[in-house]
Write a protein that binds this DNA or RNA. Structure first.
Lengths: 188, 188
DNA sequence: TCAACCTGGATGATGTGTCAACTATTCCCG
DNA sequence: CGGGAATAGTTGACACATCATCCAGGTTGA
């Protein structure tokens, strides 16, 4: 059970415990299927992808419906090149529009267009229904709580200390050390 | 990140409860960061990607380290074109090799090469360490149990009934196939 | 036996994510 | 003021996933 497949572990590699093994496998499979399903549902029921949706949500969340590009990147935890490429594609499809930023000549705003607004308004209800049907209808209140707790713990681990080093590229407002610190996160 | 509250919901859409909302946001963020981190760690510490790793694990799990292409697709829950493209890239890099299948002229076997073997042997320990450090070191035994339970429930929902319709493309046989305990390390 | 169909798998187009390099502006400090 | 560093954002190359389509080899049945 303990990974007899890799007998070469002369080194004291601490493999996962059997229960951890099972939990991990279950999680990985679930997460993969769930992502795939949500993506498929979204692009079947509407004209946008999950990524588009995430961007549009951020825009509708903003009073002005206009947001600086890097701010978008930070709130989505995306890399700046990713947001840049993605916005270019969304702009080509008319979902958003760029506007120059007068107060800072380097930057630009992203603005929600009417098409973008109607796209997300069309997509959101079905998405919420799907999430509820696939996830929350399966879980007790305690399990929902546990899911949040677990997710927060892992997320915290991921975004604090050495682990945050790479993320720090776009997470600049985080005062954490940008120490190179590779070997990354394999515990101290 | 997704599905904030949309004030325009006149329609009878059942949005998520506030606690569900919070759990969902926490999960989505965690899952995104975790995937990103695991991928980065894997390609930093070794010559392979998470996808390569998943393929190689399947191959090492097989007695004679040769497997039919579509069988691979099914066990990974990948589409056949995805596995085909991916194998082409892996073959180009020397990680696997194809062999003709004498019993069925259409098909072919995928075989683990020496390079492939050493690649996974090099990658596996660090990956296991990372998963342990990022996930399981943060969780109590009860939480590990809850994670498995939750994942299994959602996964079951995803792979039974109408939901399975699309997946069924490659999942033709066997509706449930819940983790057969072949102990394949921390595969993806 | 032969035509219709099914299956295993490859291919090309397109959309997406990542990394590294780049440009242009602004900031900081002497 | 002026010059280097930081910042905002783009671009190009490449890896990857998905979809539709194609094709060769098997299977079925009249």
């Amino acid at each position: 059970m303990m990974c007899q497949l890799f007998p070469y572990a002369e080194q004291v590699t601490r493999w996962l415990e059997p229960e951890q093994q099972r939990a991990w496998r279950a999680y990985v499979r679930m997460q993969g299927e769930l992502n795939a399903h949500l993506s498929r549902q979204m692009s079947a029921d509407s004209e946008i992808s999950m990524a588009d949706f995430a961007v549009l949500v951020q825009l509708t969340d903003t009073p002005d419906e206009r947001v600086r590009v890097l701010e978008l990147a930070r709130s989505l935890h995306w890399e700046k090149s990713r947001i840049s490429h993605h916005l270019a594609r969304m702009e080509k499809r008319g979902l958003v529009r760029r506007e120059i930023c007068r107060s800072d000549g380097r930057g630009s705003f992203v603005v929600l267009t009417e098409l973008g607004r109607s796209a997300i308004e069309e997509a959101a209800p079905a998405h919420a229904e799907t999430v509820r049907a696939l996830v929350f209808d399966q879980l007790s209140d305690d399990e929902v709580d546990a899911l949040r707790e677990i997710s927060e713990k892992v997320f915290t681990r991921l975004t604090t200390g050495e682990c945050a080093s790479v993320i720090a590229r776009c997470d600049a407002d985080d005062p954490m050390e940008v120490v190179s610190e590779e070997g990354g996160c394999t515990e101290a």
